[in-house]
Amino acid sequence: MVTFYRRLPKFDYLAPQSIEEALALLSRYQGSAKVIAGGSDVVPKLKRRAMKGIDYIVDLKGISGLDYISYDGAGLKLGPLATVRAVERSDVVLETFPMLAQAAESMASPQVRNRGTVVGNICNAVPSADMAPSLLTLDAKVSVVSEKGSRTVAIQDFFTGPTKTVLSADEIVTGIEIPNPPANSRGKYIKLTPRRAMDLAVVGVAVMVTPENGICKDLRIALGAVSPTPIRVAQAESILKGNKFSDELIDQVAEAAAEGCRPISDHRASAEYRRDMVRVLTRRAIRELLSDEAASAQGFGKGA
């Protein structure tokens, strides 16, 4: 049987007015309900029949107060209805976490960014999710609730496989908390695409570096689209940490990042090209962050 994109399957559309009500619905319908925020991932999946057994759609958009982007001095909080576009344009994000704004801007089209949410992007959990590498380098924490209680999951532990997360069917992500990055850190997300816009990442590399008097005080590297989930490459990070920056060490870091990923070959690129590009872009990101221009254009600092 050949199934192309079709009309939406039949489902009941539920619009709870509160998180509690939403959780009750998820609990009642036990896996036959799916939460949507923007719907920009779920709706095409339903049309493609890639998501089966969904009889209920629980739309969070009717719940007020979930689109917050707030900063309290210690960190940033993003609500589940904060759209990608809102994050991209938020003054506090641009000032304090510019890498997040940069990643947001790299996604899809303005129309889709107006619709899709940052939380939705990570819940959809494709390996190429553009928000994930930056959130990984920022050590973001994901707040999760169900009728049974709430928990906080480190973003590093959130993804479990392609389109899979730690979330169970009765849980909702109520926000992402992003602590302030280290003082004097700088971050950058490089997204490799054939075209200049509206493309999926063939490889995504986020790097955050904290230089201090020529020494690498801290280095965090996260990769997208090159493993079953977005990943941090701790082994590569450790090569430079505590050492003086040098071209040789940067090359070693890049090499270790390339070795630390597990890319596949598909219709978008071969595994070999993806691995090569992790090497190239990791090196490029570190070098660019160390240059003075990058420091002023991409630098953090006010946050801590």
Binding site: R195, A197, M198, D199, L200, H267, R268
Partner: peptide
């Protein structure tokens, strides 16, 4: 069109890439 045994693997404008205005 990327083909696998007669099957088109990129039958959407996400993966069948045409130039956008910015390109």
């Amino acid at each position: 069109f990327i083909m696998d045994k007669g099957r088109t693997l990129n039958p959407t404008f996400v993966d069948y890439k045409m130039p956008h205005s910015v390109d």
